[in-house]
Nucleic acid binder design. Structure first.
Lengths: 229, 229
DNA sequence: CCGGACCGTCACGGACCCGTAACATTGCGT
DNA sequence: ACGCAATGTTACGGGTCCGTGACGGTCCGG
């Protein structure tokens, strides 16, 4: 539960307030009061979470977030943005840019802690190279092998990455766009329906093990990996 | 708890009275004595609450409220209306228009403060994707799963959003128009009776868990989610 | 150069869901 | 008790979303 958190905030008072509370909650704190400094810290320390003030001198919070998202090493670091007003516009821009949540000033320490906790919990399943086991499925990223109920399963590269992602983020609905981002990679221009086809191929490959119903459709939303049966 | 409040009132004496009291309570005050002026302030300052006299020269309070509700940026700003008469008609019109509460003149400062406090506290709970539990129902936005008394429940997309909204705003009556706004989205042209049908479908889906009576009808007003039984 | 593996797209058909109307029922005022 | 209005309930047509098979293209290794 203890995490390294970077706070990017130019007002010393607010930064102190945040830092105090998060230290109380058992986190390690890093501080920056502008985007350049923050960028440097991110590159070297790779924090688990960034608390980002939306209004910054020099490079804005929006731009900073965009740069984080552009780099493969930092793209999955969650961002909580701090915004002065509860303006709908900011929220939209923020969420589009890739912020995971937002907190409007003024905020209570309790609220801040709750959000931080939620975001960290949400990102909990870290992508590792460990063997993933779930619901009778075994997937080994190192050897690139998959087996269902002991029987080996043959998968193409894309289906493998797809299954890997789904298994490491189970019990959670992923939109086709999210799957394209996470499995195909950013900035690829591929029809969303393509996801359907690969889901189909994945299911077909899981059929012999009668594990194909682990991959479930949530109509109007996306796909989900069930953890049981 | 400190909030920015806009007072729209044409009688200087009453405006002063209100302003004095609310400043004492620690709020930031904005004042307007007609609707045009008020509209301008709202657009630029985005207050947290509007105290609105129902009888105004020029554009009436009703019309002003309607305009607030028409704009996406201002539609969720709560409104407390001040009405001279305690006539049932005014209350109904007001609540239909989207006022959150009303205070009838003459009122005591104590009552006014109480109402303001209540409305601010009541402000829409922030939408998070945390699991919602209530009265035996579990709803998980992330995995898009619902269960009642442990048994899984199948819902269509609309019923899911409907139940989600009701569970996050329980013990409160929602008119059909409000439900259409919140669940269907803005600017959709859908018959209000459609809400009835989806309520029906939701109840039917909850029947197997004998939780269907959690969704209650308030005749002449709308629907409400009960927190118990 | 050829063939296989893999991928992205498309088209078709079916399943599902939604909005509406029409009818049945309930609740409330008189 | 009666009648009106509000709500419950059901059925249906249309539209959207999704599963599925097929097709052409690309990339490599032989």
């Amino acid at each position: 539960m203890a995490a390294t958190i970077l706070v990017v905030e130019d007002e010393p008072a607010i930064q102190e307030l945040i830092a105090y509370n998060l230290k109380q909650a058992g986190h390690n704190l890093l501080k920056a009061d502008n985007a350049e400094q923050a960028m440097h810290i991110v590159q070297t320390a790779l924090p688990d979470l960034v608390l980002l003030d939306w209004m910054l001198p020099g490079i804005s919070g929006v731009e900073f977030a965009r740069r984080l998202r552009a780099d493969r090493r930092t793209k999955q670091i969650p961002i909580i943005m701090l915004t002065a007003r509860s303006e709908e516009q900011d929220k939209l821009t923020g969420l589009e840019t890739g912020a995971d949540d937002y907190v409007t000033k003024p905020f209570s320490p309790r609220e801040l802690n709750a959000r931080v906790k939620a975001v960290l919990r949400r990102r909990a399943p870290q992508v590792t190279d460990d063997v993933v086991r779930l619901g009778g499925l075994d997937l080994d990223p190192a050897s690139h092998r998959v087996s269902g109920n002991g029987q080996p399963i043959e998968l193409g590269p894309t289906e493998f990455r797809l299954l890997h992602f789904l298994m490491t983020h189970p019990e959670r609905v992923h939109s086709r766009a999210q799957l394209l981002d996470q499995v195909w990679g950013d900035h690829v221009f591929v029809e969303e329906r393509t996801v359907d086809v690969h889901i189909r191929r994945l299911r077909k490959a899981l059929e012999p093990s009668t594990l194909d119903n682990l991959v479930q459709t949530v109509r109007g939303t996306g796909y989900r990996m069930s953890a049981t049966l």
